[in-house]
Design a protein around this nucleic acid. Structure first.
Lengths: 222, 222
DNA sequence: CGTCCTCTTGATGGCAATCAACGTTTGTGG
DNA sequence: CCACAAACGTTGATTGCCATCAAGAGGACG
């Protein structure tokens, strides 16, 4: 994924320590970089939401990840970025030159250790994601996705409005299902009173417990 | 996956540089470690094939990876191993204490950089795997799996006998399909003259080109 | 020879993709 | 302000792939 999650404070601190300037505001749909561009910078999301997309030769897309404030984008791509990245909302990023990161690592080896642990955690989460994508039903994927969005934006109780800045196609291409299946299952969740869909662009969890049951059923990791 | 592929010579050299002793021969079905055990060692596979398995609370298994000679098992698990690992064949491994690795990294920071790049490559391959598991049909998965086995054992041309040390259930649990589906598609490959199945325990690629087409169709990465 | 295990083959059903149509919102230009 | 188009979202009908259920074939081994 190359996007370190909020749960990784080391990455955040590390990048902050070596950052050169504060971010300036950029508009929605701004493209951070394309696949194939020189991977010369790291970006920490300060505000807004970004989308990392990989396009295949047959035209299909895989939305690799959505990046929220605190996430770091661009680590570990090698010489060239391996996916496209653009902003879904107006946003701010903090940029770090890749060379600065390598220099810092040379002078402070313990940072290297931390980053390796981070990378290991990232591999672990990717592993979980593979299992999820491989084994879960459409409903389980959607329930899990909504829960992860709520958790990432700090809305961990019932009846809180959660922003849903990505369109159905983005969700579908992220979860490996079709937009119709996303729509049908969202409707089903609404009908059952588990979530509310007041507007396009947001949702409200009405029954956190049942949503969690849907996300976990059949494939809970022990 | 936590299993570095053959294509990562740095990992191999790195572990060799810090290894304490050569491996001794162990038998098939020997258990290297269980999920939850203290992750105090790295293992480089010298000979034989290992299987990394994760068991879920509902009894289902995910075969995380198969490890071939040159692969390194146990990197990045944190304090405890996150899956079970056992030998499918008689095997030899080379063991490195985890502490030795950290010490070496402190004294030689450039190793840390290499390991980070390795981890990044691992994340990249996990990403590809996710897409594969998420998007590919059963036939595409099986074709891709057979090709990867052939490539990993250096059999990259037609009519070479490739060892298939894992049973159908292992293949099924690795690819996220059922043993019946594995069997049906293997039979179909044989019927079409694309592979031969002379014995249980091996296969022969008869038409590499068509097998590659099957593996890539519909979702080739550009 | 019988038991166990792996693998294969057949029949059926369910879930999600696909194809298709319609409703809703947003944006644009007359 | 309205007319229209384009994008997004929802809903319905049908199809196809694969899981599931079931049974049989082929070895391995006592």
């Amino acid at each position: 994924m190359y996007v370190f999650p909020l749960a990784a404070p080391e990455a955040r601190n590390f990048v902050r320590q070596t950052s050169q300037d504060a971010g300036s505001v950029i508009g929605a749909t701004t493209i951070l970089f394309h696949e194939g561009d020189d991977a010369d910078s790291l970006y920490e999301v300060v505000s807004g939401v970004f989308r990392a997309t990989k396009v295949f030769s047959d035209g299909r897309r895989q939305v690799v990840a959505f990046a929220y404030p605190g996430d770091v984008i661009g680590f570990g791509h090698g010489d060239a970025y391996r996916f496209d990245c653009d902003a879904l909302t107006p946003a701010q990023v903090q940029v770090t030159a890749r060379g600065d990161l390598l220099d810092a690592m040379r002078s402070r080896p313990e940072l290297g250790e931390k980053l390796i642990n981070l990378a290991a955690a990232e591999v672990a989460s990717m592993h979980d994601l593979s299992v999820l994508l491989c084994r879960k039903s459409a409903m389980e994927r959607i329930a899990g996705f909504l829960l992860s969005l709520a958790a990432r934006t700090g809305k961990k109780t019932n009846d809180q409005r959660v922003c849903l800045p990505m369109c159905r196609a983005d969700i579908a291409d992220h979860l490996g299902i079709t937009i119709e299946t996303v729509s049908r299952n969202m409707t089903k969740l609404k009908t059952r009173g588990i979530v509310d869909l007041p507007d396009r662009g947001c949702f409200v969890v009405r029954d956190l417990h049942r949503l969690q049951n849907l996300a976990d059923s059949e494939s809970s990791v022990h």
